[in-house]
Design a protein around this nucleic acid. Sequence first.
RNA 1: GGGAGCGUAGCUCAGUUGGUUAGAGCGCAUGCCUGUCACGCAUGAGGUCGCGAGUUCGAGCCUCGUCGUUCCCGCCA
Length: 591
Amino acid sequence: MKITKYKSNNCGELNLNNINEEVTLSGWVACVRDLGGMIFVELRDRTGFFQLVSDPQVNPEAHKTFEKLKTEFVVTVRGKITRRPEETYNEKYATGQVEMYPGLIEILSEAKTLPFMLDDDSVSEDIRLKYRYLDIRREKTLNNLILRHKIVTATRNYLNTQNFLEVETPVLINTTPEGARDYLVPSRVHEGKFYALPQSPQIFKQLLMVGGVEKYYQIAKCFRDEDLRSDRQPEFTQIDLEMSFVEQQDVIDLVEGLLVDTFKEAGVEIKPPFIQMTYQDAVETYGSDRPDTRFDLKLFDVTDIMQASTFEAFKGVIADGGTVRAIRIPGVANYSRKDMDDVRSLAISFGAKGLAWVTYMETGEVKSPVFKFLTEEQIAELQTRSGAEKGDIVFFVADKPKVVFDVLGRFRLYFGKKLGLIDENKHNLLWVVDFPMFDYSEEEQRYMSVHHPFTSPNLADIDKMETDPANCRSIAYDIVYNGTELGGGSVRIHSSEVQERVFKALGFSEEEVQKKFGFMVNAFKYGTPPHAGLALGLDRLVALLARTESIRDVIAFPKNSSAKCLMTDAPAEASLIQLRELHLKSTVTKK
RNA sequence: GGGAGCGUAGCUCAGUUGGUUAGAGCGCAUGCCUGUCACGCAUGAGGUCGCGAGUUCGAGCCUCGUCGUUCCCGCCA
């Protein structure tokens, strides 16, 4: 390291190899142990802890300063590294065999008593966020930032080696017609007009492909004005990349290599190629487009059995285009009536209209409210198909396919967690491919893009865009890690004709297309390479590798769950002068 | 927008059926203590029980409202 006036070495890097070296250290006083005579001080910097000792008989001058020290004072010390008496070695610290009797000590900055103790892991998050600069002094928070840095560095190294160019795209752009709510920025120069902050650099990175960049990446800030969750912040970071002259598999190969390198930074070894599962398989088997395959509990189809039964409720659902699926939950046959009521409420809260079940009691008895509608053969077939054993319950949901898969998928996760079936040491990565192109929105009464409007349809399904949009597949893919969507991407449309057909299928008029995407459609008329790309959620990736629940833990200065910064109090009111300059008038009435 | 949980000392929490002066640990202050490393010992300071209203002879505790915070649903191409 470069030697400065304040530092010749880092605290955490000293050991027996440095004995007798004269060093200068600076840092924070983590702890003072005043024994009356001797005083022990733990000095902390980014790298770790180092013990200072003061003895009034060794150095009375320095000792006077030591007596003034309090927690979190910033000090600089100079002295010789010495070996601790062997019986006082501290195995807990890397520097536990050495210490220093400083010849010189200077207090660089005093500190008030902190509002919370740095070694207390149970301090509530709002206090840590209010004093985030103190929270960052905590080893855990700092380590998360260090891990994030390592992952970003590994990403840059990997992509640079693969000949990618890192290109910045603008932050002040136009609003995005599809997708999330935009953050708007009023224009001072253009009265009544607004920029928006990007939800992603999507259009720009595609235009970089038109521009011949061929391989682009960016550690890109993205903004979405939607309600927050522990894994969602209003501003977040994507590892965004795009490549020309490639197909889906080329992107997958590249990203698998990237993930190997980034996971390595967290000490996790993963081995591509990862499983590729179709969207349809994922949804039918796991009830989710981001299946957690760390545990089994697969859904299965019983539509045919119920169709052949005399259970009119289920038969009606099936006649209306519905389906009946089931899941076997092991070891819950002893559930009380109340437990079962809770499970039923859970199903209803997940969107089911009702819940049916078969209980395989420990005694061997098999009970179900639906047995009266079934023949012996059908009951036997149910057991064969479910593989149910004594102690299990098989749950059924009948509804529109979307509802059934969603409910049973959530059931699967709920019981997976509750019954402790999830092996936390697994690192299951998989690709979900063949996403549908469109999804019908009841609210908007039209088809919407499942991915985004620039996603290429599967060439085999291209004419379904007009004839059967619901069954038109796209060339879109998601990377899923332990049941979390880490990122996704697609092969993009590179033909302006196909792009116009997609816009039409989405219900955009020609005027709308010209107005919103005219520049893009035009750009594509000047020679566009086939291209594809993907974006990874950096915050989620780091949070998962740091084994923390919330992405706030891996962001230096995050917003709380109501999108507020507890440290700076942003967002805040703007002055009337500012508003006037921006041609804005608040509609909020003051209380 | 909806649902649930939480809010008592600087921090983390306890507080019985509504009943006298609201407690603990840590931190902080002062004193003692020469090999500590969660140093130890002693003494002490520290409270708008989030805020407002209501019920009651009496509210930290019950009711309503409100604010803050967390999680979930909706939302997040």
